[in-house]
Computed example of a mutant assay.
Amino acid sequence: MSTSVSIAPRRLPEPAAMLRLIKPVTWFPPIWAFLCGAVSCGVPLGPNWMLVALGMVLAGPIVCGMSQAANDWCDRHVDAINEPDRPIPSGRIPGRWGLYIALAMSALSLAVGWLLGPWGFGATVVGVIAAWAYSAEPVRLKRSGWWGPGLVGLSYEGLPWFTGAAVLLHGAPRFEIVAVAFLYAFGAHGIMTLNDFKALEGDRVHGVRSLPVVLGPEVAAKVACTVMSLAQLLVISLLLVWSKPWHALAVFALLLLQFAAMRVLFRDPKGKAPWYNGTGVVLYVAGMMISAFALRGL
């Protein structure tokens, strides 16, 4: 005689799963970009440290966390194939709680953005719209291997950089700041392409045309690294034009180290993509801060 014990489905989210849903590991790029923007504008940070801290929290845990929750909710069917242990497909965040969390954090983003003044609020509105446009139907720009990573690159690097400068300046940043922020956002397209490698199988099944799916891992890796390198070469050129040779040299040295890491990546693009995200990308973002200090001295 056998007995079975039925376990009632969870009705409320598991607290640890809620933290995993908003993925703290993804907060660093927008936080760093916001800080780069604040540094680049030339306004003293000491007297404005509370404003800078609030902006960093908004860019990372709140807006980026919201975008991760929205993406996981909209990707729950894909994640059931790629990563079934994630909070939503595993049932640790049951029912429609994933959606409710994403919507609540969208409202929180707008409320905190309002505290940063008109430029900060306007940028927050753009960030929230971009997050949902990336993940949600019928727009769902992540279906495109070109538009999706481009939008995320702008949202993770370009928009926070611009916002960090605009909030402290209480106005539009000058051309040099916008140009460098855009170039690093453009280069981040490559970072996002490498991030798509982990979802290769599920993307194929559900028709997400990421570059690893469309071009294959080998070609997609080369495209990603080309985009990242080109962006940094253009930044180096601008720094030389703006009479910042030492900053340009430092960014170039970091790029040379990335070239060495790229050679490792090309040997096994799918297997080494996570490794490159922990090495080459760190070198990439280090160059961002060097460039921010160069802009501060103009």
Rank of each mutant, 00 (worst) to 15 (best):
G60D: 00
M56C: 15
A69M: 02
L45S: 13
I62F: 05
A70W: 04
A33Q: 04
N48L: 12
V57M: 15
A70L: 10
G37D: 00
C36E: 02
A38N: 08
V63C: 10
N48P: 09
V43E: 11
G60V: 04
V39Q: 04
L51E: 03
N48G: 11
P47N: 13
P44I: 12
V63P: 00
W49M: 11
A59R: 06
A70K: 05
I62Q: 05
L35H: 05
A33I: 01
A70P: 05
W49P: 00
V52Y: 02
L51W: 07
D72I: 00
P61Y: 03
M56H: 06
W73P: 01
A53L: 14
C64D: 05
V63N: 09
G46V: 14
L51S: 06
M66Y: 08
C64H: 14
L51F: 00
A33R: 06
L58C: 11
G55F: 05
W73K: 04
N48F: 14
A53Q: 12
L54R: 15
V57G: 13
A69Y: 00
V63F: 02
P47M: 12
L58D: 02
P44T: 08
G65K: 04
G60A: 01
L45A: 13
Q68V: 07
P61E: 09
N71W: 01
G65S: 10
A38G: 11
F34D: 05
